[in-house]
Design a protein around this nucleic acid. Sequence first.
DNA 1: GCCAACGTTGGC
DNA 2: GCCAACGTTGGC
Length: 155
Amino acid sequence: MSTRKHYWLMKTEPEDFSIDDLQRVDVEPWTGVRNYQARNFMRSMRVGDGVLLYHSSTEIPGIYGIAEVASAAYPDPTQFNKKSKYFDEKSTQEDPRWSLVDVRFVRKLKRSVTLESIREHAEVLGEDFALIRRGTRLSVMPVSAAQWKTLLALE
DNA sequence: GCCAACGTTGGC
DNA sequence: GCCAACGTTGGC
């Protein structure tokens, strides 16, 4: 069993929930992920894994902060809440369809690493980097240790 | 607000 | 199991 720390990138729309919001609350359950691939990545996360917090659908898309995984995956409570926009009538308590992890604030970046600068370093980051792979819209994706280092060197 | 690209749904 | 229709994502 590997106990090595893994790295991830998680997207958020800052109008909805930003790095500043995370700093304010410190720990946040990452509700609302409704994509199986993203869910599966969260299920494989471990406490202490590193997270790059990416702002999407905003004026300057990019990485704005660092967080860490603060819990193992557990059922996303919003899937059972009829009043939530994330309610899923097909999910059951016995076999919850959607999972999440808690995410804890670590720090804001001194300067954001913009999508533009990330694209400029596409070659170093490699073909397998889902953020800039054509047509990929994953909201949770793995980042290798080398990619993590490369991205934070752009700060 | 537009639209390309993708995932999901549902009829057959 | 196919695939058209629809919904969502997210950059621009």
